[in-house]
Structure formats: C-alpha cells, structure tokens
Design a protein around this nucleic acid. Sequence first.
DNA 1: GAGTGGTCTAGACCACCAC
DNA 2: TGGTGGTCTAGACCACTCG
Lengths: 238, 238
Amino acid sequence: MKKYEIILQDLERKIFDDSYPVNEMLPSENELAEQYEASRSTVRQALKILEENGLIQRRHGLGSIVISHEKLLFPISGLTSYKELQASMGFTSETEVIIFGELEVTAELAKITGFPENELALHILRRRKVDGKFSILDRDFFLKREAGMLDINHAKASTYEYLEGVLGLDIAYAKKEITIDFASEEDFDLLDLNPSDRHVVSVKSHVYLADNTLFQYTESRHQVDRFRFTEFARRQKR
Amino acid sequence: MKKYEIILQDLERKIFDDSYPVNEMLPSENELAEQYEASRSTVRQALKILEENGLIQRRHGLGSIVISHEKLLFPISGLTSYKELQASMGFTSETEVIIFGELEVTAELAKITGFPENELALHILRRRKVDGKFSILDRDFFLKREAGMLDINHAKASTYEYLEGVLGLDIAYAKKEITIDFASEEDFDLLDLNPSDRHVVSVKSHVYLADNTLFQYTESRHQVDRFRFTEFARRQKR
DNA sequence: GAGTGGTCTAGACCACCAC
DNA sequence: TGGTGGTCTAGACCACTCG
C-alpha cells in the first residue's frame, strides 16, 4: 500500500468516526507530515483526494475544514457498477437476465454504440427488481473481442467483477448522458410502470478502457419516480 | 499567471486545435518539462487537470494519449451558472424575473433550504425562454446576510457575476440532486409544458462558500423533453 | 509577524511496458 | 534494457489570513 493511500484512509476513517468532526479543522499539513512521518507533498496528495471527494474544504492561509458528509448523499454519480451501487447503498434487489446473446454490429447499431461496423458484440438485457417492483431495465453491448468468456452467470452476478477481476481489463472512464425518454412498449412489458407513466429516465453510457478502446455501451432505463441522481460539484476558478 | 496554468492552457489549446490530435501521444513528461523549462512536478500538475477534465488518458509506462473531445458533450455537469452555460453552449435565451423579494426563513423553509430559522433570505423566481418556449423555472434562495445589495437587475442578468465579481464571494462547492417530480400548478402556469406532461425534471442544489457557509439553495425545474445532463466519469480504483 | 496552504524545484527510486 | 509515468523527499519561496 502506498504511503499517501495509508494517510488518505486514516484521515477518511477519522472523519467518518468523528475523530475529526464536521466543521472542525484538520491538523496543518506540517503537523500531518510529522504525524505520518511523510513529506508535506505526500500529505498534500492525500488531502487533494479528500477535497475532490467532498470530505474537506481547503482554504489558503487557514487550513482544511471537514465538510458535512451524510453518506447517503453520494449514490449514483461516477462510474460504478450496479452491483457495487447495491452494496454501498445497502439495498437488495434481484436481477433477471432476459437476453444474453451475440450479434454483429449493424450500421444502425454502430451509430448508437460507437462500435465499428461488423464487429461481434455481446448483447445483454437485464431487469432489476427493487422493493418488489421491476423498476430498472439495463441493456448492455460489450465488444466481444474484449469481453472474452463472459457468460450468463456473470450477467446474473456482476459483469464488472469478471471483466476487471478475472480478465484484468482496465476500465478507465465513461461519458454519460441522462435524458427523459418516452416509455417504449418494451418498457411497459418488462417494467412495473404506473399505467399513467409516459416517460422513463434513460442513462446512456459509453465506457472506455485505459488504452482508449470503446468497450461497452449501456443504457439504463428507470421508472421516473424511483430515480435519483446526486452529485458533488466544485466551482471552477478561472 | 502561475506556471502550471500556462502549461495547462497551452496544452489545452494544442489539443483543441489538433496540434495534438485525438489518439496521439503527448510528449513525455520529461520532454514537456524541458520544453516549458519547468520541473517534472509542475508539468504533472497540468497533466493531472487535463486528465480530470477528460482531455487525456495517462498510462503508466506508456505516456499520455489524447481522448476524443467533442466539446458539445459537457454542458451541464459541475457548478455553473445559467449565464455561463448559455455562453459556453452558444444558445440565446430570455430571462423573466417573476418574483424578487425578501422573506424570513420559516421552519418549513429551513428544512428545505438548510438555512437557519428566522434568518432573512432573498427569494427569486425566474423563468427562461429558449427557442420561443418557457422551458425552465428557477427558484433561488440566497442568505441575505451574504448576498448584500443583490437587486432585480442582477437577477435579470447574472447573479453570480455580481456575487463573485463585485462582492468577491468565494463560491466553492454544491451538492446537487436530480429527480423527476410531478408538475405543479405553478409549473403549468409559468412554463409552456405539453398538456400531456405530468412531470418535470427537478435539479436541487445546496451551494456553499469556501468558509463552509451554506449560502444558496436553488431548484431548477425543466420541461422533460428539453432536459439533458452529461457527465464525464472516471472509474475509481480501490 | 507567525502560521497556513499554494507553487516550484532537483533529485531519487520504483513499477510498468515495450523491444 | 531503456524509457515512461507514479511515488516520495527536502527544501525554498510566495500568497493569504489573522491577531
């Protein structure tokens, strides 16, 4: 474990267990450097991450203050698999695999997914039942070339666990888009929508590997009244 | 101007004008350090920001590669005022101030805004006309104590320009939440909703100053078919 | 003026990747 | 094996805030 990670985790722990309470100052960078027997830059590397994650606010000439951090506030921002989300939010749900197949990328599909035409792709359609109602419909396309021996059992459990853990894929970043779309017939068929609903929330993502290959396109369709997105945003200084 | 900012801006420019084309490697950190007559750490500080902003992808042992960056892709993520959004996206719109008033924070309002009870707050309600239709309704509450002489003319133009530029407030971060809410009577009155619409997209934000004061609560209600949110997200390694 | 964080340097060593 | 980025150090100076 790297030194800055040790410092980071220790500070995180102390913030969450109130050793460093909200609205109180952390020790100064020099003090922390001494405490952890590290250089000031190493301490600063850890503090930088705490700041990005919305746990502290640093102020020139003053110090670092702890920000309020009700943990429930950060559920769905970032690039997180459904399984991880479920674990960190502490809810349970069932996943049903509806389609698990392979297909060739048509011109039309290439336009949507960004995959090269005629490539082979995995096509997975799953629905998630939360609190007794099917409220999320997930459609994934994976580049077959990268996804290897991904099979239906991984689709039932966690695709990312297999892709990262077993295949060692280095999933790097995603471009996400949220819009409100008209509910399709398929949505009505497969989700427990309210009869009066006309719309679903659609979250579309293009996911890239560290080597810059586009590797996954996914669309997640949510019942409108069960959708919630939260974000911690910092003001850009220019 | 700080050295790393100069390097950052120069690299940004070269990426956007295709001096460094998409999918090509940047020069190595050592080369850049030499070119800009800077230390490697200073170059790295600039590269870090390029990576956060989704312009490059760095790879251990290889180098930094330029990522595709259709600029239109990043409109509404982060903490950006409506005026700035409008400018960067290049669309025009009209803003109509419907309410500009002062009120005391009631217990009920305190719960929603997070402001202390009995404080004085500014209350501003505005609607935005885009492409000939009123499609966004913005309700702001500012802590009167901080917002000074903010007046109706600032509300017509840009509140942030006044608060940051004139008052010198240091706006630091926001906690945002997006949900789909039922359209209220007020929404129907003030927005050009489709008669069949039952919902609006609600974006609620608590905005904080650098000294950690909660300073603004704002809710932005959007016509569903005109709402779009995009985000660049990196995968967390843990 | 004393203490804080912000910037910058020069140099070292390590981990990763390609040839 | 050589080049790349990732981590870490010790030290310097600057810019900001407060008493």
